[in-house]
């Protein structure tokens, strides 16, 4: 009897300890699951907070006035919040930088993926990562002190702080994204394509330009889109080098003011929960929607490329 009882107790103990072990694991696994879902919560939260602090603006101003207004006079009376000059500023700087960064970045990606010897590839790739790591405020600083005076004298301008100055500095910041994702895309093209083309007597350049790059095109497109997303969202560099005049530019040698720079420059001087504060949050919401659309589309394109491309 006694023995039997102790046996039962033992087995209960075992069960208990096991269960408590399982119980703590159950908790850990739920926490892990929650943190996985948290990323979705965060992206939703960001949007919700942007909306929460921008919607009050529309008690006094209409959405059309915001999106089509050609004047940004936040502290005049009555204040006018027209996004058009800021959108134009962002567009000018972005287009300019993309015109520089896309050919350069895609060419560098082709070189790294198809032409460079492994030793060169392994030494250039970290340099590209370094380029990505340089803080945007440093690019702004260099642009302000080195590039701007040069632009000023070269084009004989009243100021070197122009859309073009911003475009050049931003191009450097878009390059790492464009290079690394394009290179991945080209490297993901099946080796068989290259062999088939060379075996048919095509030259290496013909193989690259007629087979490898076309096969990687959707990946390269996604890379360019992600580069655009990066440039539109860039803040400190443009704040420091584009001159910050909220005017619709007629030439790339004029100063412009981007949406990001407007937020960064003006938020510090607004009264919390004022009209101006709400207006700056609505710029943030617009920026969020634009970059979300770009990144979302780019990711869909990349995802499809990875599934079909090989």
């Amino acid at each position: 009897m006694a023995i039997e009882r102790s046996l039962t107790i033992d087995s209960i103990d075992v069960k208990k300890s096991r269960r408590s072990g399982r119980w703590s694991e159950w908790v850990i696994e739920r926490v892990i699951q929650a943190s996985g879902l948290l990323t979705i919560v965060f992206i939703v939260l960001i949007f919700v907070f942007l909306l929460k602090d921008s919607l009050p603006l529309f008690k006094t101003h209409s959405l059309t006035a915001l999106l089509t207004g050609r004047d940004w006079y936040p502290i005049s009376d009555p204040a006018r919040f027209g996004l058009v000059p800021l959108l134009a500023g962002s567009l000018a700087v972005t287009l300019g930088s993309i015109v520089i960064a896309v050919p350069l970045g895609v060419a560098a990606a082709i070189y790294l993926a198809e032409v460079a010897r492994p030793s060169i590839r392994e030494s250039v790739k970290p340099v590209v990562e370094m380029l990505a790591a340089i803080p945007s405020v440093v690019f702004g600083f260099i642009g302000l002190l080195i590039l701007a005076p040069y632009v000023k004298s070269l084009f004989d301008l009243p100021t070197g702080l122009t859309a073009m100055t911003g475009s050049i500095m931003l191009a450097f910041m878009a390059l790492p994204t464009i290079i690394s994702i394009s290179e991945d895309a080209i490297s993901a093209v099946p080796r068989e394509y290259r062999e088939a083309s060379l075996a048919l007597g095509a030259t290496q350049w013909q193989t690259i330009s007629r087979v490898m790059v076309p096969a990687a095109l959707s990946g390269i497109t996604a890379a360019v889109m992600l580069g655009i997303g990066r440039v539109i969202g860039e803040t400190m560099t443009v704040l420091m080098v584009t001159g910050n005049a909220a005017l619709i530019p007629h030439s790339i040698t004029q100063p412009v003011r981007t949406m990001t720079a407007t937020i960064a420059a003006e938020m510090g001087e607004t009264v919390q929960y004022s009209e101006h504060y709400f207006a700056l949050f609505s710029i943030g919401a617009v920026l969020f929607v634009i970059t979300f659309a770009i990144n979302f589309t780019a990711d869909i394109v990349l995802h499809r490329f990875r599934r079909v491309g090989r």
């Binding site: 996985g36 879902l37 990323t39 979705i40 965060f42 992206i43 939260l45 960001i46 907070f49 942007l50 929460k52 602090d53 945007s136 992600l226 997303g229 990066r230 539109i232 969202g233 860039e234 803040t235 990001t260 937020i263 960064a264 938020m267 700056l280 949050f281 943030g284 920026l287 969020f288 970059t291 979300f292 770009i294 990144n295 979302f296 780019a298 990711d299």
Partner: peptide
């Protein structure tokens, strides 16, 4: 979740600043 991560990575840094301020 992966889409959310990609988009989190793409949110402009100044928008993070706004969110931090608001939230």
């Amino acid at each position: 979740i992966h889409l959310a991560i990609v988009n989190l990575a793409g949110v402009p840094s100044v928008v993070y600043g706004l969110f931090g301020l608001g939230a």
